[in-house]
Amino acid sequence: MSEALREIVDSDLLARLAGMDFRVGQTVHGVLNGQHKSPYHGASVEFAQHRDYVPGDEPRHIDWKAYGKSDRLYIKQFENETNLLVHLLLDTSGSMGYGRAGLPDKLTYAAQLAAALAWLLLRQGDSVGLMTFGERIGKVIPPRARPEHFQHLVRLLESSPSTGETNVTGALEHLAEVIGRRSLVILLSDCLDRDDRFVGLARQLQRRGHRVLVFHVLDPDEVEFPFSELTLFEEMESDQRALADPRGMREQYLVEFSAWCEGLRRQLLEGNVGYHRVITSESLERSLYGFLARSSR
């Protein structure tokens, strides 16, 4: 992984990403001025709206011109651009270690994606933190906005092996407990969690004002199931095995897998959770461009 990750960090990709902006499609809380809309009104020049005065509002926010015209008291509100608080959640479970020959495994791909996103966000002045998880919570780097913070993130991404079972639910539960103001939560995982409560948790976070994005990282073998010979399949997260003739069950597998992917996407989107499926056979640049182009719309 480390070699592949260094390739990302050292490549021209970061330079090409310099021209791109990461925009979150909703307001987020921030403490610094940034490119994202802030829920806090006040020290800004961009008018947002009027609202009725209620006792307790500061008299300095009253729009006296509007009072002169309508004889009613309105409070003048301004939009305040602020920096973004981003939590990157990287799945490092055993299943993320799968990769077709000649392609990076899912963890490497997801780490490269996380590094690129972190670089992009840090460049915009956003605070980026990182949490790795498998069966349990791994290492956690709190969000920071300093440029040198990127190196910390990269070191953690390099040193995260794939092991243990997938527990996205546990990771989101932990995040829900520690997360403070509204943030952007980016989950990079294959989502092969036997416990499907993580969808509900993601939707819950979204309802609480956070912006949740799921990068569903898949290997082309999982999508296409190209096996043909009699094969003894072994689970990557346990010792479970299954002898199968892929020719006989390929069609059923593809039906099952597609249905699962589609169900996951639909449930997340219904809860306004962002869903973006990436396949490791696609170039990272293309995946990122596709995501950023959609997020900017």
Partner: peptide, 24 residues
């Protein structure tokens, strides 16, 4: 002589196997 493959989405193989194994 079955080939041994470590695979991530074993759950779907098991699920598909159950449905197709008998017919196949």
């Amino acid at each position: 002589r079955a080939v041994l493959v470590r695979f991530s989405a074993l759950e779907f193989i098991l699920r598909s196997n159950r449905k197709t194994a008998r017919r196949f």
